[in-house]
């Protein structure tokens, strides 16, 4: 199967005041790939995602998706073009049930649409994929942590994305939950969606990513297959400096 570049970041730069958070970073993503974006805490990974999604205005550089420049677009435009992001914090609407939360993410961006959105059956389908079908009438506040994280991914899928950004999807999960989620991520990918996963810990990612980009202080310090990265000295050093071992 031949693969094409579906997404590219070119010389991306983000400064806060005088502080450089992302330093002329470039990488791309093939349409059949799961890419790991790793780096120590505070290395700028989430900032990269925030720049991609239009949450921060970038200082320089560009973001391309399917040959379109999406650097300056608003978040909702980027989502509607087919990129969905599962952020690190879970933020469901607390007063709405799990089902309503998923439903909300299927509403058309149309100020005259009174009843659009997914049918009950479609919502049930999405929920089933993440074992939330029994909990559709539950409020998010009373869900266990792993379910709240699953709800976030279900919501992102409800926007029918062509590409997914996952921000620390395994944080706070136990081994069994990580295994299960890894399988689900592989399934999502197998349906033809390229994925970028951010994590500070390489271990959980090793088994599912095809390629890894390592950043530190906003700069790319290494890129390669998971095996290459695991043995890379620069990477080891960056993590040791950040007092975090990849083990």
């Amino acid at each position: 199967m031949s693969s094409d570049t579906v997404f590219r970041i070119d010389e991306l730069r983000k400064e806060f005041g005088g502080l450089v958070a992302v330093d002329d970073l470039s990488f791309d993503l093939q349409d059949d790939e799961i890419l790991g974006l790793i780096g120590p805490n505070g290395s700028g990974k989430s900032t990269v995602f925030n720049c991609i999604m239009g949450i921060y205005d970038v200082t320089g550089g560009s973001v391309q998706f399917r040959d379109t420049d999406i650097t300056k677009l608003d978040t909702h435009d980027i989502v509607n073009r087919g990129i969905a992001r599962v952020s690190q914090e879970s933020n469901p609407i607390p007063s709405s049930t799990v089902g309503e939360n998923i439903d909300l993410f299927t509403y058309p961006n149309d100020i005259f649409s009174l009843t659009g959105g997914a049918s009950q059956a479609e919502i049930l389908d999405i929920a089933r994929r993440f074992d939330l079908d029994e909990k559709l009438d539950t409020l998010p506040g009373s869900l266990p942590h792993a379910d709240v994280r699953r709800l976030e991914i279900a919501k992102a899928l409800a926007t029918e994305p062509e590409m997914l950004l996952l921000d620390e999807p395994f944080a706070g999960m136990n081994q069994a939950e990580i295994r299960e989620l890894s399988d689900q991520i592989r399934d999502i990918h197998a349906e033809g969606r390229p994925i970028i996963i951010v994590d500070h810990n390489m271990k959980g990612l090793m088994s599912i990513v095809d390629r890894v980009v390592v950043i530190n202080s906003g700069q790319k310090i290494a890129e390669g297959s998971p095996e290459e990265i695991a043995n890379d000295e620069t990477v080891q050093k960056a993590y040791l400096a950040g007092a975090e071992v990849t083990n």
Binding site: H76, N80, I93, Y107, P108, N109, G116, A158, T159
Partner: peptide, 25 residues
């Protein structure tokens, strides 16, 4: 009671979240 009202109330509770669903808040 329609989509519009639900979106507006969701904006009141968590605007960033609803923007990331593709809604132009």
């Amino acid at each position: 009671q329609s989509n519009i009202g639900r979106i507006l109330r969701a904006i009141g509770e968590n605007e960033a979240a609803i923007e990331s669903s593709g809604i132009d808040t």
